[in-house]
Amino acid sequence: MGSFVVNIVTPSGVIYDHEAKFLVASTEAGSLGVLPRHAPLISPLKIDALRIDLVGEKEGTSDWIAVNGGIIEIRDNVVSIIANSAETEEDIDISRAEEAKKRALKKIEQAKTQDNHDIDLSRAEVALTRAINRLNVANKKR
C-alpha cells in the first residue's frame, strides 16, 4: 500500500514528523481522508482532531493531534499542516484544558444572560471549541 510523510508545523517549530498510511482531517469543505500518492491539494482546516494511522513498528496504532485550524497541503507524498497551534495527545495538559473549557462556558453564559457587550461571544465560542477538541484528543490516549 505504501506510506507518506506527515509533518505539522506551528510557530514553535515542527511538532510532528512521521510516516503514515492514512490520515483523516476536517477541512472547511468537509472530512478528508488521505492515502499514499494523494492528488495535490491545499485546504483550510477546522478546529478538530487529526487521526494519523502509522506504519512500521507502530502499524495498527494511530496518533491523534489537536489542531486549532490552519492549512493542509498535500504534495509529492508529503502532508504538511501549518497551524497556529497544535498538540499531540501526550502534550495536552488535561487540567489546563478543563479550566479553559470552564472559562469559555462562563463567558458564553455571561454574554447571553447579561447581554454583556464587553464579552466577545464568538471568541468565547472558539475558545470552547478548542478546549473541547483538546480534551477529546487527550481522552483518546486512555
Rank of each mutant, 00 (worst) to 15 (best):
R75D: 15
S62C: 13
G56V: 08
R37D: 08
I74R: 00
G69Y: 02
I47P: 01
G30A: 06
P40R: 03
H38V: 00
L50Y: 00
T61H: 13
A25N: 04
L23N: 02
R37A: 07
S43T: 14
G69S: 05
R37M: 07
G60Q: 09
G33Y: 02
I52T: 02
E59T: 14
L50M: 05
E28L: 11
E57W: 10
I82P: 08
I42A: 12
A83Q: 11
G69N: 02
A49R: 11
V67N: 08
L45F: 04
A66L: 04
V55A: 14
L23F: 09
V79M: 10
D63E: 14
I72R: 06
P36S: 04
T27N: 05
I71L: 14
G60P: 10
K46C: 07
L45Y: 03
I47M: 09
P40G: 04
A83F: 10
A49E: 14
G30Q: 03
G70A: 07
L35W: 04
K58C: 09
V34I: 15
L35T: 05
K58P: 07
D53K: 12
E59K: 10
D63T: 05
G70P: 07
V55T: 15
R51G: 06
S80W: 02
S31V: 10
N77D: 13
I52H: 00
A49P: 01
V78D: 09
P36D: 01
V78I: 15
E28G: 09
I47E: 08
A49I: 06
S43G: 08
P44C: 02
G33F: 02
S80G: 13
L54M: 15
V67W: 06
I47Q: 07
G30D: 06
S31D: 14
L32N: 03
V24L: 14
A83C: 12
A49Y: 05
K58F: 12
I47S: 07
V34P: 01
S26Y: 09
A39G: 12
V78P: 06
G33M: 00
V24D: 09
A83H: 11
S80H: 08
F22V: 06
F22D: 09
E59F: 11
L23T: 05
V24Q: 14
S31M: 11
T61G: 08
R75K: 14
G70E: 08
R51Y: 06
L35N: 08
I65R: 03
L50R: 01
G30I: 04
T61M: 13
I74W: 00
A29E: 13
E57H: 13
I74A: 01
L41Y: 06
P44G: 03
V78N: 11
T61C: 08
D63S: 10
E73T: 13
L35A: 06
